[in-house]
Amino acid sequence: MTWNRKHLLDIESLSADEITTVLDTAKAFKAVSQRAIKKVPALRGRTVVNLFIEPSTRTRISFELAQQRLSADIVNFTADASSLKKGETLKDTARNLEALNADFIVIRHSAAGAAHFLARTLNTHVINAGDGSHEHPTQALLDAFTIRERKGTIAGLNVTILGDILFSRVARSNIWALTKLGAKVTLCGPSTLVPRTFEAMGCRVTHDVDGAIRDADIIHLLRIQHERQRKTMFPSIGEYTQLFGLNKARLAKTKPDSLIMHPGPVNRGVEIDSDIADSVRSLILEQVTNGIAVRMAVMFLVNGGKGAQEITGG
């Protein structure tokens, strides 16, 4: 058990032990969601602000449910309805939220480093719910949790991440988490979206799909992110599907027990065949379920104070 952090800003700075602590804690929280009363009082009386400057549905709902199941009080703050539209800076918005005595800020922002900036500026706990193309730590933790739950362990597994790596914060956080936990990570996709520079993060980079997924235990698909591409990085969606989409013929050439993941939202018929997305090898909905448990665990862990962990007797 290792956890002394006030914030969760990225995976890059976490140790393997810290990641494992989150996964172990999440296991206990997953059980809470399976009870008749899906709620514990761990964050009773604590106020959480969900500051979603960039649109998000599933991550925000997942965080909200996690917070509700921990009995926290919640304020949701979205870009459309906020004073940011009137020209207020992020710093001023955040300091105003702090002045309202918020204890936690969960931030999603289109700029990389936004969560780190808030953590430096404010005294509240800060949780990064995705910052630009930089990191999406809770997504990587829930992915790791899902893999470990299904495969028993992560060390030694072959994980192939397929798709838009360049613009993907999910990919970056996953690469950090999986390599720290001892998986062998392969990245694959069009050369414009999967540059060789990623080899510096300890991954294998290839542009040959069949070779990339042949020995994979986990095939992790990423959505093509139209909103993050300033210019087109490949000729057409149809060509992408042809060359890199996961279909039955491709899947037939993989290990029979390989499992498929996708952080959502799924573009059916683009990066994945509709049938495969609904098949028994797809973990897509388990990822959603596990997201709540992992986010509960993260909020529970960062809430801890500075005191000693062990209290003898009780």
Binding site: N4, D24, A28, A31, V40, P41, L301, G307, Q309, G314
Partner: peptide
Amino acid sequence: IDVNMHRDDLSHRAAPTVHPT
């Protein structure tokens, strides 16, 4: 039963290890 999610001192100490219930 694990009682760590129901403790009254959670924000005054490092987060406890949660065991299965």
